[in-house]
Write a protein that binds this DNA or RNA. Structure first.
Length: 462
DNA sequence: AGCCTTTTTAC
DNA sequence: TAAAAAGGC
């Protein structure tokens, strides 16, 4: 018999390990340090939900998903012994954080005479397979994208036959695992809801994605981030259907729009490769400046940002959406990240840590990539002098202030043009228009100058 | 995926 | 003369 070990992400959808290797597998999920390390209530809740649907799928097919706690190497060797297992397969982690643990598990299995088989399905092309012609990993996205786009992809894998097995263990609760109930309202996890989200997106939204994706009130994004992170949908299945959608496009604009979405899939892989080759970026700047960046240490401004009470409406709307849904629209993620680093002059690590605590779709590689991009410290990051104006961004991407008013109730009765000129109003005008909504905590144009000074000093320009 | 200043273009 | 494009941080 064979065990398929579902790792800290479940990876149920395109499962090379399940489909390709010989033998009828049972499933195993282990709550271990690597699962609970850096976890947060929304993701643990999402994972438990997905786990419950995954186990139902195993049981429907006469098999079982075993749930265990402890050290994976010990759990795996004990279970392999009990069930007479000769092969254990699992999906690789390329984050650079768990690779050592994977190697250790493989060694232990070898020692007890069980064959470890490692596969991958979190990304289409593993790190090291998309490189410059000189063989180096890419540090510029656009060239990476051209190769990724044109490289042949494996098909999604069929679901294999499963073995007969029984297990009476029940799913742990959040409390068992030491987590509070998430306060945010979460999307439904599992293969079926994930496929539903993909199908809904492909029906129509993908064809206007390019023009609409930056407007948070329009909600024209796929909402697949948590599914891709946990593997309740597979990247190969998504990419295959996206390619079919590109082929089915009726106009150039539709084709380009669907291709733009496909490029977002490649961003995920780009950052996964960056992290695999540079695991230190989790805590260090990717881009080295001459001197340390002299970030400001201001706990009160950081707290105001976290609460969504900065007096910059689009920023506050984003931070409130994060609180309410453990999710934030991608355009708004860029805006709040730029605001934290370039207006509040606070180190991106604080923002990254907060997103890690709150987001249902937090993924080390992608979130770190996003934060370092916004902070101008990352691979292919935005240049330090390109500083978002949070008011202009709000006006451009939420012109009717629909998104802002949805998430910031203090502004729900305020006209869009008042909201978009909040920074220009006098304190009295602000108090009259929305007495409960905060005054701006900083002056953007002044802070912009400070940010430029901070980076020029780090560059050694002075 | 910025913003301000300077230069070029199109009447 | 104003709008568009280009240049630099």
């Amino acid at each position: 018999m064979r065990i398929h070990w579902h790792r800290r992400d479940l990876r149920v959808a395109d499962n090379r390990g399940l489909a390709d290797a010989p033998g009828r597998p049972v499933g195993l999920f282990v709550f271990d340090e690597a699962v609970l390390d850096h976890a947060a209530p929304p993701r643990v809740a999402f994972l438990l939900d997905a786990l419950s649907s995954l186990r139902a799928a195993y049981r429907d097919r006469g098999s079982e998903l075993f749930i265990r706690r402890g050290d994976p190497a010990n759990v795996l060797s004990a279970l392999a012994d009990d069930l007479g297992v000769d092969v254990v397969s699992w999906n690789r982690d390329y984050s650079g954080l768990a690779a050592d643990r994977d190697d250790r598990v493989a060694d232990v299995l070898d020692e007890v005479g069980v064959t470890p088989q490692r596969f991958h399905d979190a990304i289409c092309h593993p790190p090291g397979t998309i490189t410059t012609n000189a063989g180096d990993p890419y540090s510029v996205y656009s060239y990476f994208w051209k190769k990724w786009r044109d490289r042949e992809k494996d098909d999604p894998y069929p679901v294999p036959a499963l073995a007969d097995a029984t297990d009476e263990t029940t799913l742990p609760t959040l409390a068992d695992l030491g987590f509070d109930e998430p306060t945010a309202e979460l999307p439904k996890a599992g293969t079926a809801p994930a496929r539903g989200r993909l199908a809904a997106f492909l029906e129509d939204d993908i064809y206007r994605y390019e023009e609409a994706r930056d407007y948070p009130a329009t909600e024209c994004t796929s909402r697949l981030s948590a599914d891709l992170k946990f593997g309740t949908i597979g990247i190969r299945a998504v990419d295959k259907q996206v390619r079919e959608a590109i082929a089915a496009a009726e106009t150039d604009s539709e084709r380009e729009s669907a291709a733009e979405f496909r490029s977002q899939l490649a961003w995920r892989e780009f950052y996964t490769h960056v992290l695999a080759f540079n695991p230190e970026v989790v805590t260090e700047n990717y881009k080295r400046y001459e001197h340390d960046i002299d970030w400001e240490d201001d706990p009160e401004l950081l707290a105001a940002w976290k609460r969504g009470e900065t007096g910059y409406p689009i920023v506050d709307a984003g931070m409130r959406q994060l609180q309410a849904e453990a999710y934030m629209h991608n355009r708004v993620r860029m805006i709040v990240a730029s605001f934290l680093t370039k207006d509040l002059l606070i180190d991106w690590r604080h923002g990254y840590a907060h997103f890690r605590d709150r987001l249902v779709d937090h993924d080390t590689a992608n979130d770190n990539g996003g934060w370092q991009w916004a902070a101008s410290t990352g691979t292919d990051a935005q240049p330090y002098f390109r500083i978002f104006n949070p008011m202009t961004q709000g006006e451009r991407y939420d012109p009717d202030a629909e998104y802002i008013r949805e998430y910031v109730p203090e502004l729900s009765g305020v006209e869009a043009d008042v909201i978009h000129s909040w920074h220009e109003l006098s304190p009295t005008q602000r108090a009259n228009a929305a007495p409960e909504y905060p005054q701006p905590v900083v002056d953007h144009s002044q802070r912009r100058e400070q940010a430029l000074d901070m980076f020029e000093q780090a560059r050694g320009d002075d």
